[in-house]
């Protein structure tokens, strides 16, 4: 693996981001809309109830961004190379698929952090909510676990794109939203019906959001849940990487890599 090639690809994604307004919308506009909608809704609910939901919901909105961005960035930047029929040039050069993926992950992480800072400032300005009232060590663990899960989803979707081509591109935008109801982002696990709770219990991101609520309610952290999330994600990461490698080989065999369709 060569860093100069990873940096070259990161430069490419930077150019694409600044050249295309829709990519800047991903960083600022949509997360801001989420924050504003959930912020005002929770402010209204808080006024009607005894419980302060504001910090719970805003914290969840801000952390959710990492899972959402990590998953979507990886698949959309790979799709970008399909749309511009650029795989031909990329993979006839010394670029390895692992370098391609690492460049997207690092660049995507940078974008997520920019969004995080932007939302943190906005949440403070609009609702006086300070995200850093959450302990830093938990923020780091949460960001790591959510980003890792997003990258795993991104790897699987990228694998599917390499195997089946652009016809499955809708998954790049939709898969993460299928996961959201079972991640207990905005409500506790106990609020789910038994069948949904069973799915939520095996979903690693559930434990991040459950623990966010524990911290804000000054309850003890569930370290067992976080440990489970880490172990499951590491296993999923290995499986997703294996699947991506198999799909890349299949794309080389079918000609998808050369033709892009």
């Amino acid at each position: 693996m060569k860093w100069h090639r990873i940096l070259a690809l990161m430069l490419k994604y930077w150019y694409i981001t600044i050249a295309r307004a829709d990519r800047l919308f991903d960083v600022f506009y949509w997360p801001m809309i989420d924050l504003v909608v959930w912020g005002f809704a929770s402010k209204f609910i808080t006024e009607l109830s005894e419980v302060n939901l504001l910090s719970v919901l805003l914290g969840a909105v801000i952390l959710w961004t990492f899972l959402w961005r990590a998953s979507q960035d990886m698949s959309v930047y790979v799709l970008e190379d399909f749309w511009s029929r650029n795989l031909y040039h990329l993979f006839s050069s010394p670029i390895k698929v692992s370098e391609h993926i690492i460049a997207i992950i690092l660049f995507g992480l940078g974008r997520s952090l920019v969004t995080f800072v932007f939302l943190a400032i906005l949440a403070f300005a609009l609702y006086a909510f300070n995200i850093f009232s959450i302990p830093l060590f938990f923020l780091i663990i949460a960001i790591f676990l959510l980003s890792l899960l997003g990258w795993i989803l991104g790897l699987v979707i990228t694998g599917l794109i390499f195997r089946f081509g652009q016809r499955i591109q809708v998954l790049a935008w939709s898969v993460v939203w299928i996961l959201q109801p079972f991640s207990c982002v905005f409500y506790p696990l106990s609020a789910l019906p038994p069948w949904a709770a069973a799915i939520a219990r095996v979903t690693p991101s559930t434990y991040v959001f459950e623990n966010l609520r524990n911290i804000l309610a000054q309850r003890p952290l569930d370290y067992g849940g976080l440990g489970y999330a880490l172990i499951v994600e590491v296993i999923f990461l290995l499986l997703a990487s294996w699947y991506l490698k198999k799909s890349f080989d299949a794309a080389k065999k079918s000609g998808l890599l050369a033709t892009g369709n």
């Binding site: 940096l7 070259a8 690809l9 490419k12 150019y15 694409i16 050249a19 511009s84 029929r85 040039h89």
Partner: peptide, 18 residues
Amino acid sequence: PLSDALTIRQNLRIYAKI
């Protein structure tokens, strides 16, 4: 063709670095 969202210089710079 090379990435159409990028300029000639940007495209060539990326491949030069690769």
